[in-house]
């Protein structure tokens, strides 16, 4: 019983990270209808830049984390400004291809700037571990769960209450009508990529002390975050968080039955299964179309 509880708790921790990544997909998709294949690389960069600043440049963590968030946010905005907005052909596929290009570019950039070593960043500390006779919840896990709570709360406040959030929702529902109301769709687009990058950077800096940081980790982060988003219903922010937590739980439960090397394959198999059988997910709208 405690074994199971422990498994579930560790599942929730990784699930929270997947939820944050899924939120990144959701923010960008809702504002621009672009599926951002570089979304996982925001997380990767969050981890690599943060770990690099701390271990290679010997910055204090208190400085390194905000610097990482600012830096990755700028790189995310760059994807929109220099990529999406300048695209000669704005079909779904060519925009996605541009994000694939940026994904490779980010990986290359990190490799050149920080190197090809697997790095570990120090834990955030401050919050104490929870340790009882049967259970152990690490301080970093608590940070991660706290971050998911704060970020999803902050985002729902932003989208429901603030001018910017309302404008972003309007722009996604009807770009032309929004433009007539004086909302600049380009601004909304930049804002969405920057926000997704910021969320990704935080997720990356949070997971790096537990899971290590490496320039090539973005792909798997991205695929799992996407799986979480599809599970929750692509485009639904609530679905993204719920989907992420569920995916984390499923992954940690299955880990008990499978060799650890296949752990990543489980989430990907779930993704394939969902896409083929249940593409609408938990909170998604069913789109009936015929080909």
């Amino acid at each position: 019983m405690t074994q199971l509880l422990q498994t579930l708790l560790s599942g929730l921790t990784t699930g929270a990270i997947y939820g944050l990544i899924a939120l990144g997909f959701t923010i960008v998709f809702n504002a621009t209808k672009v599926t951002n294949f570089a979304n996982g690389d925001f997380v990767m960069m969050g981890g690599v830049v943060c770990a690099g600043l701390v271990t290679l440049a010997h910055w204090p963590l208190l400085l390194a984390v905000p610097a990482t968030i600012v830096g990755v946010t700028a790189l995310g905005a760059a994807l929109d400004v220099f990529g999406i907005q300048r695209a000669r052909r704005k079909t779904v596929l060519s925009l996605a291809m541009i994000t694939i290009g940026f994904s490779v570019l980010y990986r290359g950039l990190m490799q050149v700037l920080v190197g090809r070593d697997v790095m570990f960043a120090p834990s955030f500390g401050i919050i104490p571990d929870i340790r009882t006779a049967e259970l152990y919840v690490g301080s970093q896990s608590l940070w991660i769960l706290l971050a998911l709570g704060l970020i999803s709360g902050g985002l729902s406040y932003l989208f429901l209450k603030t001018r910017l959030g309302k404008a972003m929702r309007a722009a996604s529902q009807s770009p032309r009508a929004a433009a007539l109301c004086g909302i600049d769709p380009r601004l909304m687009s930049i804002a969405s990529f920057a926000m997704a990058a910021a969320v990704g950077a935080i997720a990356g800096a949070l997971i790096a002390p537990i899971g290590a940081a490496f320039y090539d980790y973005g792909l798997v982060f991205g695929l799992k975050g996407f799986a979480a988003a599809v599970l929750g219903g692509f485009g639904s922010p609530v679905g993204a968080v719920v989907g992420g937590l569920l995916l984390g739980l499923m992954e940690s439960i299955s880990a008990g039955y499978l060799a650890s090397a296949y752990k990543d394959a489980v989430a990907l198999a779930i993704l394939l299964g969902l896409l083929l059988v249940w593409p609408s997910g938990l909170f998604g709208r069913v789109e009936a179309r015929r080909v």
Binding site: T35, F37, V92, L93, A96, I100, L219, V220, L223, F226, A227, A259, A261, Y262, D264, A265, L268, A269, L271, L272, L275, L276, P279, V291
Partner: peptide, 28 residues
């Protein structure tokens, strides 16, 4: 047959996931 029921972004993501799964199998 199943994959091509998907289009554009979903097809790209699904083939990517398929490729990673095969890579894991090759390695394991």
């Amino acid at each position: 047959r199943p994959l091509l029921r998907l289009t554009t972004n979903y097809l790209a993501m699904a083939t990517l996931a398929f490729g990673v799964i095969c890579f894991i199998l090759f390695a394991q």
